[in-house]
Design a protein around this nucleic acid. Structure first.
Length: 414
RNA sequence: GGAGAGAUGGCCGAGUGGUUGAAGGCGCACGCUUGGAAAGCGUGUAUGCGGGCAACUGUAUCGCAGGUUCGAAUCCUGUUCUCUCCGCCA
């Protein structure tokens, strides 16, 4: 959530920002509730003050019927004010939760098609066999049996393709560890508080992309970002500790309702895929630099593997609530002759940390929310699509990217 | 899953109805001391919200939610989590 003081001081900015992100919220309504809440709070505080005064008079001395009578009247008055206050606080909280994070000034306005290419690497070659056809021909992927044991968009990877997945994972893991990230495994489910604090939609949202556990306050994670955000919830970190660099590896579970069709075939969009995620808790003044750092690492990984890509600065309408700015790396698909999403990195500034109460104690003694950032190191199913499209031979074999050979026992062809 | 114990400030840890926002310790900050440091001594040191230029001030907060009471960290109920023992088990 945003800082209410910031909203009070900049209502037009916040309204404009929400509109540009495509969120239908009324800041005027929020401020109206906020005003009512404040004045009711004032009333309650005054009643409590009187009560506390009487109470301290009663404390030492003998019981006084007069004072107790007064106190009882105050108690009655409070019992009418407090429920109203509670109701306003709930409304206030509900509205606050709907207001998206502020964007950085260099985020392009508009929707998906308005994202701006800021960098390009490698050749835009054309012509290749579809990754699914290629994999099935080698008996490397089995979606039919995936559907049999689970449902559609679940799959088995077999043999060398499964080994290739491991190789890519291990390569990326070694890479980010060298960059100073601490590897961690993590819970594959999170409580609703953590999920929503990280910015994921609640169970009540039928559009939600998440799987919820029946009868439990738990959701399967759609990304390691969720548990990693929650890792330091309700903690006050020391300034010297920051930035904290974590790399979390986990499956990601996503409903992806209604996403079928040619461009979502095979491994490109599935209900479950493994992912190595970078996550940073930083000082506020570091976060822009950290965001560039994550992007640079993502680029280095894909350059090392040898997959052509471009980087786009995601437009406002596609940012989502928590992000202040987002870069996607899209690889060039020689099958579809277009760029397709491969990784994503967001600077969530203090949006998630306010939700989950993650703060830093500055050397000055001041306490303030930290900034949080996330970014994909490798997203496995999609990485396999990119590698198959770019390293296939016409005889149905697959060349192994140079940097992955050491993770495949030195083999250069699969 | 069953039984028991617990949850207090950045950390540890007192506190069973009334100046307790909370003893004491640690840590941290500043000062004194010192050639310098350590030790020692002194002072200070929670957060949210509101008011105030500020000094400061009102209120809330002792896992969470209710309840009893003029008044709750303290009593009652529910709940979550942690620990110990038992059961089950990769």
């Amino acid at each position: 959530m945003l800082d209410i003081r910031f909203i009070r001081e900049n209502p037009e900015l916040v309204q404009e920002n929400a509109k540009n992100k495509g969120y239908d919220v009324s800041i005027a309504q929020l401020l109206e509730i906020d005003d009512k809440k404040k004045s009711l709070q004032q009333q309650a505080d005054e009643l409590r003050e009187k009560r506390n005064t009487i109470s301290s008079q009663l404390k030492g001395g003998k019981p006084s019927d007069e004072l107790i009578r007064e106190a009882k009247i105050l108690k009655d008055e409070l019992s009418t004010v407090e429920p109203k206050l509670k109701e306003l606080e709930d409304q206030y909280g509900g509205l606050m939760a709907q207001i998206p994070n502020m964007m950085q000034s260099d985020v392009p306005l508009g929707g998906e098609e308005d994202s701006v290419e800021i960098k390009k690497w490698g050749e835009q070659n054309n012509g290749a066999i579809d990754h699914l056809d290629f994999a099935i021909a080698r008996d490397w992927a089995d979606f039919e049996r995936g559907a049999k044991v689970a449902s559609s968009k679940f799959y088995f990877l077999k043999g060398d393709l499964a080994l290739l997945e491991n190789a890519i994972t291990q390569f990326a893991l070694d890479f980010v560890i060298k960059k100073g990230f601490t590897y961690m495994t993590l819970p594959h489910m999170v409580s609703s508080r953590i999920a929503q604090g990280a910015g994921f939609s609640p169970r009540s949202d039928i559009e939600s992309n998440e799987y919820f556990i029946d009868g439990e306050d738990l959701a399967l994670i759609g990304t390691a970002e969720a548990p990693l955000t929650g890792y330091h919830a309700d903690e006050i970190l020391d300034e010297e500790q920051l930035p904290l660099l974590y790399a979390g590896y986990s499956p990601s579970y996503r409903k992806e309702a209604g996403t079928y069709g040619k461009f979502n075939r095979g491994l490109f969009r599935v209900h479950q895929f493994n992912k190595l995620e970078m996550y940073i808790f930083s000082l506020p003044e570091q976060s822009i630099e950290m965001h560039e750092k994550i992007l640079a690492i993502e680029e280095e990984i894909w350059q090392a593997i040898g997959i052509p890509y471009h980087v786009i600065n995601i437009a406002a309408g596609d940012l989502g609530a928590p992000a202040s700015k987002k870069y996607d790396i899209e690889y060039w698909s020689p099958v579809d002759s277009k760029y397709r999403e491969l990784t994503s990195t967001s600077n969530c500034t203090d949006f998630q940390s306010r939700n989950l109460n993650i703060r830093v104690r500055r050397s000055s003694g001041a306490i303030e929310p930290v900034h949080t950032l996330n970014g994909t190191a490798v997203s496995l199913a999609r990485s396999l699509v990119a590698v198959i499209e770019h390293y296939q031979n016409s005889d149905g074999t697959l060349r192994v990217p140079e940097v992955l050979k050491q993770y495949l026992g030195g083999r250069d062809t699969l």
